[in-house]
Design a protein around this nucleic acid. Structure first.
Length: 326
DNA sequence: AACCCTCCCAACCGCACGCCA
DNA sequence: TTGGCGTGCGGTTGGGAGGGT
């Protein structure tokens, strides 16, 4: 793309009569010069490298070009669901530590992740009228976006459960001994010999300050299974325009009581959703609902909403923008 | 066709830090 | 200790692409 922009801003700097340094988009010739030089001599010492390679660029510019564009191990194309999931979770954990986040996404640069965050994630937050740093947005990410990503990952790997776990592992999502997959947590700090049991013991949820320490002393609760919840969203005008229950009857049948009375399914859904959105410590994670795999049994029924499906047809639109009327 | 607007992303900027003489 | 240099990081900018009117 940068090459397509060639010449648009490629003016020489005024500074330096004897050595005119170029700025702006890189030309193919410059790319070849830089790539060939690094292939022959390696990278580093960027200022000297720029001079020796015959490039009229600052070392800084050369380094940036190499790391963000020319490096052979770079991945191209849009972020996969796994990568988006990782970005969301790692950002919740580390904030704008783009380079640190990028270390866990092979082939992706900090610049790319930063751009992804600013263009996609912040746009969604803006549409939802909340700040990306707000608890409300974190809850929406946890309750809507991440489950949707997990669903997509599952769908893509539905050919075999082993693949699912392998995928989660490859994506640095810790998988516990029973196959449950946890939110990104301190597994990165466990060291190479950490067993699945250790993973479970160290689980912390990175996504919400509302995460709670479990009573059994096994660390902080993982993400709740995403299936049943009520998505309540505000329209652009600030009024609640809709709420819809997503449920998986195969998973979410345990009867709930409220004041000694059996709760209707709708009441249960509502209570669960409130708990999630308000960061309550009720996780609805009774043993019957804890299941093997990467939330593998989660299969949202296609939710009808005013003739539109809950999730937009656009593969990249993970928010229910149709429903929101945004 | 022309204009406008938004999205996307490569590239730049300023700053901080580490190393070394 | 200090100053210069190289490097890395996060924030910002600006222009192409594409869609809508």
């Amino acid at each position: 793309m940068a090459c397509d922009q060639r010449g648009m801003r490629g003016e020489e700097t005024a500074a330096g009569e004897e050595e005119m340094l170029r700025r702006g988009p890189w030309t193919v010739e410059e790319d070849v010069l830089l790539a060939n030089y690094i292939a022959a001599n390696g990278e580093g010492r960027w200022n000297a490298l720029a001079r020796r390679a015959g490039l009229k660029r600052t070392g800084k510019s050369c380094r940036l070009r190499w790391l963000n564009y020319l490096r052979p191990d770079l991945r191209r194309g849009g972020m996969t669901a796994e990568e988006q999931l990782l970005v969301l979770e790692l950002h919740a954990r580390w904030g704008n530590r783009w380079s640190k986040i990028a270390q866990h996404l092979p082939g992706r640069t900090d610049n790319e992740i930063k751009n992804y965050w600013r263009t996609r994630v912040q746009r969604h937050a803006k549409q939802l009228r909340c700040d990306v740093g707000s608890q409300r947005f974190r809850d929406l990410v946890r309750g809507l976006w991440i489950p949707r990503l997990l669903e997509r990952i599952h769908a893509a790997n539905s050919s075999g459960e082993g693949d699912v776990i392998a995928q989660a592992t490859a994506a640095a999502l810790p998988v516990a001994a029973d196959g449950r997959c946890w939110a990104v947590d301190d597994v990165f700090d466990l060291g190479p010999g950490a067993a699945a049991a250790d993973v479970e013991l160290s689980c912390t949820t990175a996504l919400s300050s509302s995460s709670s320490v479990s009573t059994d002393g096994c660390g902080v609760q993982p993400l709740p299974p995403p299936a049943p919840m009520v998505a309540t969203a505000e329209s652009a005008h600030g009024s609640v325009v809709s709420s819809a229950a997503m449920h998986d009857t195969a998973l979410w049948q345990p009867p709930q009581t409220h004041g000694g009375l059996m709760m209707t399914q709708e009441q249960q859904h509502h209570q669960r959703a409130e708990s999630q959105l308000l960061g309550a410590e009720t996780w609805w994670s009774d043993q019957t609902s804890l299941h093997a795999g990467l939330y593998t049994d989660v299969g949202f029924p296609e939710l009808e909403f005013g003739g539109e499906t809950m999730w937009g047809a656009c593969a990249d639109d993970l928010w229910c923008t149709d429903m929101l009327g945004l």
